[in-house]
């Protein structure tokens, strides 16, 4: 459509006022934020897919992208797990409950939930990768009958750095879910689970039906290479290995260019990519 014929546009960059309704530390440098759009109508009609992200603004500090940790199957509140690493997150950590922030989104493609229905779901988490994968995990649990096996492998550096540690220990008790945890090193002396990197958990996963398994991976950049090797060993098809990636973003809507990888944009074409995309695009991981 020609530019001159476009009708008056809404501003895609305008942050919507949102309230921090709950904020608490998950680890020393990771905080959990529950946020609700101030406008009740908008809060309830905010539709998203697991794996999508939102842009959060802190007045005067700036704006940055964050993956949504809550599940769309529990509408109303949005949840984020945020590590204090930069200007925006430092400002965010100073905000108390009932503070107002700006929020816009959801953006990105998210996980292909429809394609995953009726299949096994293997979730491989490293460290703060638990933030985006928590959305899809909770979604699977809320709709447990729509998926076959649900397997979670979660590795973190130390017990104190495992976010939602208690939630995962509770999940271990469930019979409809396989959950295996590991830490690189135990400095507490009380860790009862595996010690080692997340790939040491793979032998615990028995009788995988690779053609009918979707593997979802998120973690620090170094982790992907090793995890993907294990998934390929299990014969999981390349297009069913999904990973969600991090990039610098200033707009979230395919304008600012920062998240470009080759000739695709992480904000529009991602942040969820398949292993086939990785082989094809070269610069993804």
């Amino acid at each position: 459509m020609k530019v001159e014929n476009k009708s008056n546009q809404t501003n895609p960059f305008l942050p919507e006022p949102a309230r921090i309704v709950r904020a608490y530390h998950l680890t020393q440098d990771v905080k959990f934020f529950q946020v609700r759009l101030v406008d009740m109508e908008k809060a309830l009609s905010f539709r998203y897919r697991p794996g999508q992200f939102a842009m959060i603004s802190v007045l005067g500090a700036g704006e940055a992208p964050f993956s949504i940790s809550s599940t769309p199957s529990r509408p109303g509140l949005l949840e984020f797990c945020i590590r204090k690493v930069g200007t925006v997150t430092n400002a965010l950590f100073r905000l108390k409950e009932n503070s107002l922030i700006g929020l816009r989104g959801p953006y990105g493609n998210g996980f292909p939930i429809e394609a995953m229905e009726g299949k096994d779901v293997l979730i491989v988490v490293g460290g703060l990768g638990a933030a985006p994968l928590r959305s899809v995990l909770l979604y699977c649990l809320d709709n447990r009958d729509q998926f076959r096996r649900v397997i979670v492998l979660y590795g973190s550096k130390r017990p104190a750095e495992m976010i939602f540690r208690e939630e995962y220990f509770d999940l271990k008790k469930r019979s409809d879910l396989e959950c295996h945890l590991a830490v690189d090193a135990d400095d507490t002396g009380t860790w009862t689970e595996n010690i080692g990197v997340v790939t040491t958990l793979f032998p615990k996963v028995k009788e995988v039906d690779p053609a009918n398994t979707y593997a979802l991976v998120c973690g620090p950049p170094v982790m992907y290479k090793f995890v993907i090797k294990e998934l390929i060993k299990l014969n999981i098809p390349k297009h069913q290995i999904l990973m969600t990636l991090e990039r610098r973003m200033k707009c979230g809507v395919g304008k600012c260019g920062h998240c470009a990888i080759d000739y695709i944009y992480t904000c529009l074409d991602g942040p969820v990519f398949t292993y086939w995309d990785v082989l094809h695009m070269r610069e993804l991981i």
């Binding site: 895609p12 809507v253 395919g254």
Partner: peptide, 19 residues
């Protein structure tokens, strides 16, 4: 630039300036 800025989440600043 129209293909980037005026489509798919049109950039309201660019579109107005163009119009």
């Amino acid at each position: 630039l129209d293909r980037i800025f005026a489509q798919n989440f049109p950039d309201s600043y660019y579109v107005q300036a163009r119009q």
